[in-house]
Design a protein around this nucleic acid. Structure first.
Length: 900
RNA sequence: GCCGACUUAGCUCAGUGGUAGAGCACUCGCUUCACACGCGAUAGGCCACAAGUUCGAAUCUUGUAGUCGGCACCA
């Protein structure tokens, strides 16, 4: 078979993915076992406007590893993909496009035409990300791909809304909300990000005090401090702390609010901190959440002075009407200055709320919106955590606590959005403004007894539909509540996602899952770390330091990228380095070439299931590699079951490169190249098992190579997939057979490896050319002698020696280089080649090293407390080690003395 | 302000009570018939600092410093 010298991922990636998908390998229906255990994962639905980034690639890789692993173990797996309509992002994107191409705004064309345009955009450009996902090799079931605005998912949204409304959890109310003046919509608290303002200022304004309502000026003034002077136009009180002696006498008096004709009261409230600023606070109930609450307590007027675009409205007065909030701020300050009422301006570090999406400073605004009271659902989620410790977080610390604390302090969720793209709120109003919440307009009309209804123009927060994702995608829509998929695949097994949507999404899925299905949506939640750039900085568009996964795929291959991502420690941030991918690219090439070697010498041999089993006459290397394989399978199972992907990657890397390539192939190479069919069969079979273990991580490479192996067929499939076309994807995942663990073989092989390494070490340190063959004298006990004798050919080859003299005692000329291993003493006569100074130095170094350890052991073992209190097993272990090292030191010292 | 994480070899990171590990980089040697994206052999660390618990601490506790993150507040 012709096989190139280096692995080229491109061809394998395209060809194999198409084949897998076309043959239906990704769908749960491929599983023929009616009793198969289900395993399901839903992908966090990416925004339909989004494109793939490293965070996705990381999460997706982990999910696919788990899915492929479970599928190979015979589970009926569903890996579900879909996308999110992403209300604001998508609406903004299409709005921009509309402006650019037709110079029109959404308002110009109207709601219906606009949403039609968004659908058009979605169908044409949306879902770019799902196409990119195919490149990642994800084994998702494309036949079940979902979109949050699919008919069935929309129905689920309406039903959930109506039910929560009917039960009193959803309500409409007037509150101070987070208003984005640019996007012109309300946002939930979670969509607001606090950021430090660059040049924050604190303005001290003097308010003239009147001696009482309607009374004359006192000549006194009260100074208030504010960061938003423009809001003073909406002030309806000034508050001081009731126990503040400075202002005691002023409470009950009034203020002639400058720049307005209004007179406002001075009130006392505990909310005010005397120490802060001047101890007197201007109160603007319509533009500040705290002020609003204070206003409620004191029955203050709530005067709205701004429009929805953050310009001042008529109530702000003719001087200010129409001005932007920042222009108004300057003008207010100017006027105060002119009036001599500006006391001072101080620099002040202030953090301001920003719109997460467009970065505009949020304006707190009094507005009528829809809210969800989360208390019932919150309690269900907390109970689930308290009583069942579910979901289990990986890593548990700190996420369990953060999640729980957040739930405990949960506030009402603002769910209406002033957008057109999304799930329109199923509420209708009659001409008198009465509200009718219903599943359909017909139902609402029936309730209202009239056809003169207008639907609420707002849509729901995108996360409202995402919150239902684990069950709405499986067929639940509020009317159909027991779909086949729901019965089989809910709850899902594990959710893999980033920290950033722990509150926005994870917690809400738990709450809705408990409320509407009565069951948790998933058992486990794996929280991935953040992929940072090589300097440890967050990747961001503005910094331009992002790394595009597609570029990395193109450069190093998908499999190498997957290994790199999976190789990062679960939940820990890690800095991206191309060198890491490069090393896994090299690993892929190593696997390719190891296979190439096996295939070049496979005449007459083929993969054989029995070859993995021990048989009489198997050589030490065979027994050893079988044991290593099984031990690796065992550790791999544990690593994956506990989501320690990096551990799994290490195990596979070490097993394949060190054990299989560096030792096993080299040990059996002579037999293989000599055309020993039995030996070829054995190595092909080990290789085949190794490829299976690697498959969940490196799907393309392993499929490509597996298909080349002689003797592979669907006969190697897990029994659940016996009718499927042959693929490594559906083979049985190797699990450890305890009977094949062979401690004796590992110990014996360890002695051989140590011996060979020691000889190589002597050669390297004595600068003996590999062209020079020498005799190696070995002294060891009888058992060890036998081991060396029966592996003499391999030792000679790998140690590049000509002859072994295996005895109980060393009897060698003084002109020898010496060394010790745990099991043997070694001497290599080097007449004419030996450099005595160098040899003395070499021995001295070894003696010193061992001596340090020996001293430590001696110290520990002579400590009565240690011997008395440490476990006997540990004491014995150290005693054995002490004996062993003592022996080695003795031998080395004798050798050294000979050279004196 | 509250909560949390991290600090280990030059770099990026594993390691959770009992002799410090990997990959990359570095040094030395190798045109060894799968692979130079390779092979072989080295070197490199008071495990941030301090105190405590323990026979024994990189690992547990407390404190300190630095880095980063989440939440709250911010007149």
């Amino acid at each position: 078979m012709e096989i190139s010298k280096a692995y080229d991922p491109k061809e394998a990636e395209e060809k194999n993915y198409q084949r897998w998908e076309a043959l239906g390998f990704f769908a749960p229906e491929i599983n023929e076992n009616p009793h198969a255990e289900p395993f399901s994962i839903v992908i966090p639905p990416p925004n339909v406007t989004g494109s793939l980034h490293m965070g996705h690639a990381l999460q997706h890789t982990l999910m696919d590893v788990l899915t492929r692993w479970k599928r190979m173990l015979g589970y009926r797996t569903l890996f579900l993909i879909g996308s999110d309509h992403a209300g604001i992002s998508t609406q903004l994107m299409v709005t921009r496009q509309l402006k650019k191409e037709e110079h029109k705004s959404p308002k110009d064309i109207g709601r219906e035409a606009f949403t039609a345009k968004v659908w058009e955009w979605k169908n044409k450009y949306g879902g770019e990300i799902t196409r990119q996902i195919r490149r990642e090799g994800l084994s998702v079931d494309w036949t079940r791909e979902r979109f949050t605005m699919d008919e069935n998912l929309s129905k689920a949204v309406r039903n959930v809304f109506v039910r929560l409304y009917e039960e009193g959890w959803i309500y409409r109310g007037t509150r101070i909300v987070n208003w984005c003046p640019k996007d012109k919509t309300v946002l939930s608290d979670l969509e607001v990000k606090e950021e430090k303002a660059k040049d924050g200022k604190l303005y001290f304004l003097k308010y003239p005090v009147l001696s009482g309502p309607g009374a004359a000026a006192t000549g006194l003034s009260l100074t208030v401090a504010t960061t938003r002077p423009e809001t003073m136009l909406g002030d309806t009180a000034v508050a001081v702390n009731p126990s503040d002696d400075r202002y005691k006498d002023l409470v009950g008096k009034t203020i002639a609010l400058p720049l307005t004709s209004r007179e406002i009261p001075i009130v006392a409230d505990d909310y005010v901190e005397s120490e802060f600023g001047t101890g007197a606070v201007k109160i603007t109930p319509a533009h500040d959440a705290n002020d609003w609450e204070l206003g409620e307590r004191h029955n203050l007027e709530k005067l709205v002075v701004m429009n929805d675009d953050a310009t001042m409205n008529a109530a702000a007065g003719p001087d200010f009407e129409g001005l932007d909030r920042y222009a108004a701020r300057e003008k207010v300050i100017e006027k105060f200055d002119e009036l001599g009422l500006l006391e001072k301006i101080e620099d002040y570090d202030v953090t301001l709320p920003h719109c997460e999406r467009c970065k505009t400073v949020i304006e707190p605004l009094l507005s009528e919106q829809w809210f969800v009271n989360m208390s019932e659902m919150r309690d269900l989620a907390l109970k689930l955590m308290r009583e069942e410790n579910t979901p289990r977080f990986f890593p548990e610390v700190p996420h369990k606590k953060v999640y729980t604390t957040w739930l405990e302090n949960l506030k009402d969720w603002t769910i209406s959005r002033q957008l057109w793209w999304g799930h329109q709120i199923p509420a209708w109003y009659d001409t008198e403004g009465n509200v009718y919440v219903a599943r359909t307009e017909q139902e609402a009309q029936k309730q209202a007894g009239t056809h003169e209804l207008k639907q609420d123009p707002d849509v729901l927060d995108t996360w409202f539909s995402s919150a239902l994702w684990p069950f709405s995608t499986l067929g639940w829509n509020g009317e159909m509540t027991d779909s086949d998929d729901l019965k089989v695949f809910y709850p899902t097994d594990v959710l893999v996602t980033g920290r950033d949507i722990l509150f926005l999404w994870v917690s809400r899925m738990v709450m809705t899952g408990m409320k509407f299905i009565g069951q948790k949506p998933f058992d486990d939640v794996v929280i991935t770390g953040t992929v940072l750039d090589k300097n440890g900085q967050r990747m961001s568009k503005t910094k331009g330091n992002g790394i595009d996964p597609l570029d990395v795929f193109a450069k190093y291959g998908v499999d190498a990228t997957r290994m790199t991502l999976a190789g990062s420690s679960t939940g820990v941030d890690f800095a991206w380095r191309d060198e890491k991918v490069e090393s896994f690219r090299n690993f892929a090439n190593k696997i390719w070439n190891a296979t190439r070697f096996c295939l070049m010498n496979s005449e007459g041999a083929s993969v054989s299931f029995e070859a993995g089993l021990p048989a009489a006459g198997l050589s030490l290397p065979d027994r050893w590699i079988v044991s290593r394989l099984n031990k690796t399978a065992k550790a791999l199972d544990h690593a994956l079951a506990t989501y320690q992907f990096h551990e799994a990657v290490q195990l596979l890397y070490h097993f394949f490169w060190d054990d299989f390539c560096d030792w096993y192939i080299e040990l059996v190479k002579d037999e293989i190249t000599a055309g020993d069919v039995a030996a070829s069969t054995r190595i092909l079979s080990i290789l085949e098992q190794a490829l299976r273990m690697l498959h969940p991580f490196m799907p393309y490479l392993t499929e490509e190579l597996w298909q080349m192996l002689p003797g592979v067929s669907s006969g190697l499939h897990n029994s659940a997939y016996s009718s499927a076309d042959q693929t490594i994807m559906l083979t049985d995942f190797p699990v450890c057979s305890d009977a094949l663990l062979d401690d004796a073989a590992e110990t014996e092989m360890g002695a051989v490896i140590e011996l060979i390494t020691k000889v190589r070490n002597i050669r390297a340190e004595m600068n003996i050319s590999t062209a020079i063959k020498f005799t190696v004298h070995i002294a060891a006990n009888a058992d060890t002698q036998n081991i060396f004798r029966s592996n003499e050919a391999q030792i000679l080859k790998l140690a590049r020696a000509e002859k072994l003299v295996i005895t109980g005692d060393l009897d060698v000329p003084r002109t020898s280089a010496k060394g010790v291993t745990a099991a043997a003493a070694i001497a290599i006569p080097l007449e004419g080649l030996i450099d005595f100074d160098k040899e003395r130095e070499r021995l001295q170094n070894q003696i010193e090293k061992l001596d340090i350890e020996l001293q430590r052991l001696n110290g520990q073992l002579s400590n009565e407390n240690f011997v008395a209190k440490a476990p006997a097993e540990k004491v014995k272990e150290l005693r054995d080690r002490q004996g062993e090292i003592g022996q080695q030191v003795t031998v080395l010292k004798q050798n050294f003395d000979v050279l004196k």
